[in-house]
Measured scan of single mutants.
Amino acid sequence: MTSCHIAEEHIQKVAIFGGTHGNELTGVFLVKHWLENGAEIQRTGLEVKPFITNPRAVKKCTRYIDCDLNRIFDLENLGKKMSEDLPYEVRRAQEINHLFGPKDSEDSYDIIFDLHNTTSNMGCTLILEDSRNNFLIQMFHYIKTSLAPLPCYVYLIEHPSLKYATTRSIAKYPVGIEVGPQPQGVLRADILDQMRKMIKHALDFIHHFNEGKEFPPCAIEVYKIIEKVDYPRDENGEIAAIIHPNLQDQDWKPLHPGDPMFLTLDGKTIPLGGDCTVYPVFVNEAAYYEKKEAFAKTTKLTLNAKSIRCCLH
């Protein structure tokens, strides 16, 4: 018999989150649709729960009410004593943790798909938090293969000092899905179709896995975050240069030392320094102006996964 890495157990509980950011409308629209008619997301033997994560922000069509829901799922915020004085999103995070967690427990949901849009030209993107997770690498390989020839990129946010504390991190297997470009507060049919297909293929993978299909060893190309880059700023902290036209919409493309990065209003080009080629992502993302992030630098690498098969009882 072929030796293989056996994944822990079959997958039982899956959640699909929309509206973690209330103005990213593809996930909101799909989740609302699936709450009314969820036939397309159901798979035999699998509990799939669509869920609106930040209903107040969705109602106002804004990213958040008090603070970013997708950055506060750490033990400090989840452990705060519940009171009306807490920011709305912290209270909501505790409610979500109660419903789908608790985080880092045996009772937490197996998989959470968190649906997002970006204003950046990132196409279909899967966000991975753990480079050693054979199950998710296999799932992402399946999704990428199923979507081809449509490109699907994998963004690895594993980093020693950049801690995200994402909404989906309460699950055993957290999956971020990011599709763009799409303006905030807008629905685009092409973007919706791409996100819908990503979810379909992900659920198909889980179904095949649960039925005992063995997935042979595989490898995927990923883009691992190195650092986030702020806009150049003046002495008052105001933005002093904008994304250069040569960099705009060039997510995932190589940016070499000396290539144009920013452009000042008086026409001066600010190039990339250093001696390493990087791959920019979230270029000129609207939501990241407040976070002082013009783009993120990534490096390209390959992740390998062992063969996996479900432990059938």
Rank of each mutant, 00 (worst) to 15 (best):
L272T: 08
Y223W: 05
P102D: 14
T20L: 02
A296S: 13
N210C: 07
F51I: 12
N117Q: 02
L86S: 13
L187A: 14
V14S: 03
T167C: 13
Y109S: 04
K59A: 12
H159F: 06
I41Q: 01
V90F: 15
G176Q: 11
I177N: 03
T20G: 07
L312T: 14
I96Y: 05
D104L: 15
M122T: 14
Q250Y: 07
T166N: 15
G45L: 05
F29M: 12
M82D: 08
E293F: 15
P183W: 03
A171W: 03
F29P: 00
E89F: 04
I199A: 03
T53M: 07
V90P: 10
V14R: 00
Y279E: 01
I11E: 00
H244M: 01
E214P: 10
G19W: 03
C124D: 01
R71L: 14
V14Y: 02
H201T: 09
L303E: 00
L255D: 01
E129I: 04
S169K: 08
S307V: 05
S83R: 14
D85C: 15
I220G: 00
L86Q: 13
L265R: 12
M261K: 03
Q250A: 07
T167I: 06
T2A: 08
N54A: 04
Q12C: 10
Y289W: 11
L78C: 12
L35V: 10
K291V: 07
G274K: 04
H207A: 15
Y88V: 07
M261R: 01
S146M: 09
F262Q: 01
K268S: 10
G27Q: 01
I16C: 03
I11T: 05
D275L: 08
A148V: 09
T119N: 14
N134P: 14
K268M: 09
E106K: 11
I96F: 06
S146I: 05
K292N: 14
L265I: 14
V154Y: 02
E8Q: 14
L25C: 13
G19L: 03
G258S: 15
D251Y: 02
I112G: 03
K81H: 12
I220S: 02
H201W: 04
Y109H: 13
T53K: 04
M198C: 15
G79C: 07
Y288D: 14
P50C: 10
M261V: 15
K13F: 05
Y142D: 00
Y155M: 08
Y223I: 03
T167G: 12
G38T: 11
F209Q: 00
L187T: 15
L25W: 10
V283L: 13
A287E: 15
Y279H: 08
I226R: 07
V48G: 02
L255G: 00
P217L: 03
F135S: 01
V281F: 03
V278K: 03
A219D: 08
A7I: 10
G274T: 05
C310P: 07
I239K: 05
K144Y: 04
D275V: 15
V31F: 01
E227C: 07
C152Y: 00
D275C: 14
Y153L: 09
V48T: 07
E40I: 01
A165D: 14
I16M: 05
E227D: 10
L312G: 12
T269H: 08
K144F: 04
E158I: 03
A305L: 02
I65Q: 13
W252D: 02
D114S: 06
C311V: 14
G274R: 03
N77T: 12
P245S: 05
S169T: 11
N70R: 07
W252N: 02
T269Q: 08
L162A: 09
N54M: 04
E178R: 14
Q250R: 11
F215S: 03
F17N: 02
L303C: 06
L30G: 00
P174Y: 10
G212Y: 04
A171M: 03
E106T: 08
Y142C: 02
Y142I: 01
Y109G: 01
V28W: 12
K32H: 13
T44R: 10
I111S: 01
H244D: 03
C67S: 07
I225P: 07
V186K: 00
S169M: 07
L150Q: 08
A240P: 00
N117D: 13
E211N: 14
I72H: 09
I16K: 00
H313D: 11
E47Y: 12
G237D: 07
E293G: 06
F135P: 00
Q194E: 06
R43S: 04
Y288W: 15
T299R: 13
N284M: 03
Q182D: 01
C310S: 14
P216N: 05
A240I: 11
K268T: 12
Q138N: 00
N121K: 09
G19R: 02
P174T: 09
F51T: 06
T299A: 12
G258L: 07
G27R: 02
P245Y: 04
N133G: 01
F140V: 12
L46H: 03
L115A: 02
T20W: 04
H201I: 05
S161L: 10
K268Y: 07
G267H: 09
H141D: 04
M122K: 03
P280Y: 02
H10C: 11
Y64H: 12
H10V: 10
K268Q: 09
L30I: 05
Y88M: 08
I239T: 07
I143R: 00
S161I: 15
G267A: 06
D85E: 11
L126G: 03
T298N: 01
K60S: 13
V278C: 11
I157T: 14
P55L: 10
L99V: 15
T119E: 11
H10A: 06
L312C: 14
